[in-house]
């Protein structure tokens, strides 16, 4: 399992936010992308998630000898970001059930309850997302991202809106991801640099 970036460049009009980033990240490794607001951290993660095309260069996932472009690698990826939203009208369990169904996963209610417990939402499975605080909603994003045990975890601002226990959850998630694949974390919080085997500073 590895992620290979080759000369990734991201432009917004005449403004270049990322110029020719190249690296290889292997299973068990965590890359932290650091930088000020507007330095291109989130854009790079969106490129890695296949949600945005780079102006130049390529990102490729390699797994079991097969190579995948980010646009075709949704099944490989777990994604948590401030701009990711789940369905406010549905309960936590209904949200997870829906995403499990469209991914073709057969999850029992007990498995979903265990996942919710892991992210600190035990007993809140039948509550509508609309009734959650911002921190609880962020925890549910972790459940969404971990639902299919993805070999690649992409975390944009991983602890934003989370309390101390939430930050501990992120620490556990990142530690566990090292045993399951790789992770890329975008942050402007200097305390989160410790998660990384490598730090890519932008801006």
């Amino acid at each position: 399992m590895q992620l290979e970036l080759a000369n990734i460049t991201i432009d917004y009009g005449p403004r270049r936010v990322l110029a020719g980033a190249s690296l290889t990240l292997r299973a068990g490794q965590v890359l932290v992308v650091a930088g000020a607001n507007g330095s291109g951290k989130s854009s790079l993660l969106r490129v890695l998630a296949g949600l945005q095309r780079p102006s130049a260069g390529t990102a490729t996932y390699e797994l079991g000898g097969a190579r995948y472009q980010p646009e075709d690698a949704g099944w490989l990826l777990g994604w948590v970001a401030p701009d990711l939203q789940l369905y406010r009208e549905l309960t936590a369990v209904e949200n997870l059930r829906f995403f499990a169904d469209v991914r073709g996963l057969r999850k029992t209610r007990a498995e979903l309850a265990t996942l919710l417990e892991e992210v600190g939402l035990a007993g809140r499975g039948d509550d509508a997302l609309a009734t959650f605080s911002s921190g609880m909603a962020y925890r549910l994003k972790y459940a969404y991202a971990l639902l299919h045990d993805p070999p690649v975890l992409l975390l944009d601002e991983p602890t934003v809106t989370l309390d101390e226990r939430g930050a501990a959850l992120v620490e556990r998630v990142v530690a566990r991801q090292r045993t399951r694949g790789l992770a890329v974390i975008a942050t402007n919080d200097s305390r989160e640099l410790r998660y990384g085997d490598y730090v890519l500073r932008l801006g």
Binding site: A27, G28, T179, G181
Partner: peptide, 14 residues
């Protein structure tokens, strides 16, 4: 795939 630090990654596309 077993990496040297015991990373286990399912290589089969689900």
């Amino acid at each position: 795939l077993i990496a040297k630090n015991n990373v286990q990654v399912s290589s089969l596309k689900p």
